[in-house]
């Protein structure tokens, strides 16, 4: 791995950490279990490792953004997560912040336009 790859990977990881939370919150207006969420996010183009998503869900629940329930009716017990009232409120505010960030970045660099500096 070249030096650039390493640096870019590190920054990308930090960027993804926040975006993943937004992605998760966006999908939990209705209950989902961990693995279904991995699939949904991947289909939407946001790939997340299950090994980091499951712990993330627990952390968001501990913060009060999510609520959970074990469904024991199926063959395998599954833990379903959904937004708590606090989570709904937080998500709505975060969406506003996210739009501000995106529009700022659009002003700084032509995200949607042509890449002036070329691609690497």
């Amino acid at each position: 791995m070249s030096k650039t790859d390493e640096v870019v990977d590190g920054i990308l990881q930090e960027l993804r950490r926040g975006v993943t939370i937004l992605g998760v919150l966006s999908q939990l207006h209705k209950p989902e279990y961990g693995y279904s969420l991995v699939t949904v996010l991947a289909e939407g183009g946001l790939s997340v490792d299950a090994s980091s998503l499951y712990p993330l869900l627990r952390r968001l629940e501990a913060q009060g953004l999510l609520q959970s329930e074990w469904d024991t009716n199926e063959a395998r017990p599954r833990k379903y997560y959904s937004l708590s009232p606090l989570g709904r409120e937080a998500y709505a505010r975060l969406c506003g912040e996210w739009e501000a960030i995106v529009s700022a970045m659009e002003r700084f660099s032509p995200v949607k336009g042509e890449h002036e500096s070329g691609s690497y």
Binding site: Y35, A50, K79
Partner: peptide, 16 residues
């Protein structure tokens, strides 16, 4: 709890 979660996760991955 985490044990149940991880077992469920492995099972889901296998089924998929």
């Amino acid at each position: 709890e985490i044990e149940k979660e991880v077992r469920g996760l492995v099972a889901d991955m296998l089924v998929e």
